[in-house]
Each structure stands twice: as C-alpha cells, then as structure tokens.
Nucleic acid binder design. Structure first.
Lengths: 156, 156
DNA sequence: ATGCAACTTGTAACCATTATAAACAAAAAC
DNA sequence: GTTTTTGTTTATAATGGTTACAAGTTGCAT
C-alpha cells in the first residue's frame, strides 16, 4: 500500500514541500475508498485542522492528480468531480438510482486487440463501468412498481 | 436508426410538444457522433435557426436525457458535460493527450457474473473505456521525448 | 377559432473551480 | 544567525457551465 512518505518523496523530487496541510490531505486521500468530492475531503480535513482553506484542498488534489496518485472519475451524481484514490487498477459499479459508485474487482483480459480500429493506438489502461441497481435500490424499485400497479388498477 | 418522428411520439405520450426548435435540436443530436457539449450543439443549431436560445438547447437535451435517448459521458476534456447520442451500446477510447473520445465497437461478454460482489445487483449495461494515445498523439509524444533526450545530453 | 398548457427567451442566480495577490514558512545562502 | 529565495497558504475575486425564473409566445385539443 502507498504511504504518505512515498508521495512525500515524489513531491521533493519536484521541488515541492511537504507541509502539515498537505500531509493531512494526502493521508485522507490515501485512506478513502468512497470516491470523494473535493468538498467531502475538505470536510474531513476540517475535523483535524479547522484552519485549512478550501483552496489548499483543491491545490493538493490537483498536485496528486498530476502525480497520477489520484484520478478523476465519471461523476453522474452532481456536486462536483469525484476522485478515485485507489492505486491498483479496478472497475466500477454505478447505481443509477442512488448514484453510488463502488469499486469492483474482476479480471478483464486486455480488450484492445479485438478491435482493428485501435491497432495504431497505445492503450494505457482499460476500465469497465457497470450500470445498474444496487441491492437496496433494487428492493425500493420493485416496491414502487408494485404501488404503481395498484394505483393503475384502482382506476387512476 | 432512430428518427425524429419516433422521438416526437415519445414526447406526445408525455404531454410534451414538438416545436421547430426541438425538432432541430433532436435532429442534430441524432446525427452527431462526436459526443458534443451543449455549447457545440448550440453552435450547430444557430447555423439553421439563429434565434434559438442557449436555454432551449439545455432544456431539450435534458428532456432527451430523461427519455434515455442521450447519455452523459465521462468528460475529462473540460468545457462541460459531453453527450453520447448513439442508440446502440458501444465502448469508448479516450486519448489522454488530445482528449478525443471516440466510439469503439467490440464484443464484451457480460462481466457481472465473474464478481460475487455484484450477485444481488441488477446490471443494466456495461461500458468499457480504453485510455491511451491516438495515432497522431503517439507520434507527437515520441517526437517530444526524442527532443528532451537531446536536450539532456546537451547538458541541460 | 379559442383557451389552456406547454414552450421559448433573456436575464439573473448558482455553484464548483481557478486565478490572484498578500501574508507566511521553511530551507538555502551568506 | 540573518537575509534571501522559493514555495505555500489564505481570503477574495473572477470564471464559466448550468439552472431558475418571469414574461411573452406558440402548439394543439376542444
């Protein structure tokens, strides 16, 4: 697992400094698996260092992005860009109802070969996104459908 | 292929009206394969109907979204949300350098079964995104690298 | 043809993100 | 141990995509 120290090393190489603010923000990012928005990270930061500004969180996340330690993620839930903080490659399941985005571990063989359209491209990574209903939303959905059925029978 | 008429029918069913503006915007969306932003659609609309307001384009695209005729797409290129206007399921290749997003046709067997984490979920669709360099950017990239190499040898 | 509901338009509001400038900290140079 | 340099934080302002709103207009059913 990646450590704050490893990233500190990368920062130093680029002539950047490891400040207490950065240390905290990076630490939070490395331990978060919820694909947080900047705002969510900011709120967590305030719990420990209430004086940190929102701008610093934006800046630090941007640095992590350019280091490749964090990635922007498809966000259909609104409220800002979400960040994927996982080091290892993985895939995603997105619940179209509650907008939750969770990591999925499954093996996917390299797919680029199957396409002649991509023969001259360099493929760096591939990511699968599954769209559907999570267990909780599946239950809610069928409940609602049953209700609508009843209303329709009752004569609208 | 989907036609404006088919969508008009869907609109009528929901008690919505088919105005000239909507007809044009829908027509543009149905024939666009470039994953346009609202702004790009708006500019195309102006070529035919210079009086249409940006708001109408936003509204119509939102309606198409709720009809499921158009989908939001991961946009890492900035400049706003991009829309996928293709009816058929397909996959994406994203060039990390020039930020182009192009459709890819390849067969992907349903992957959900391989994961026990998803056993209680309903999977509606799956989409693969390939990240890499398109042919043009691949060339530019290696050119740049050669240049940097030379500078390094020259003694910085 | 008439009337209502829906639509379009321009403007203003919103909110996430980025730019800016001044105060500040930490390390390097002297 | 100062001074200098370089990078950092902070608050505030600016930007830009998107949505809300209110007034006038239009499609369409009766």
């Amino acid at each position: 697992m990646r450590s704050v120290e490893q990233i500190a090393e990368q920062l130093r190489k680029k002539g950047l400094k490891l400040t207490p603010q950065r240390r905290l923000i990076i630490d939070i990012l490395l331990h978060d698996r919820t694909h947080p928005t900047v705002e969510e990270v900011y709120r967590k930061v305030l719990e420990t260092m209430p004086e940190v500004s929102r701008t610093t969180v934006y800046n630090t996340i941007r640095e992590m992005l350019s280091l490749g330690e964090v990635a922007e993620v498809q966000d259909l839930s609104d409220g800002g860009i979400r960040y994927d903080t996982t080091g290892e490659p993985h895939h995603h399941f997105f619940c179209v109802r509650c907008k939750a985005l969770v990591d999925v571990n499954l093996d996917l063989p390299p797919m680029a070969e199957s396409s002649t359209e991509l023969s001259d491209c360099v493929i760096i990574k591939q990511q699968l996104t599954l769209y559907g209903l999570c267990p909780a939303c599946r239950a809610l959905q069928s409940q609602e459908e049953a209700l609508e059925e009843k209303e329709a029978v009752a004569g609208r």
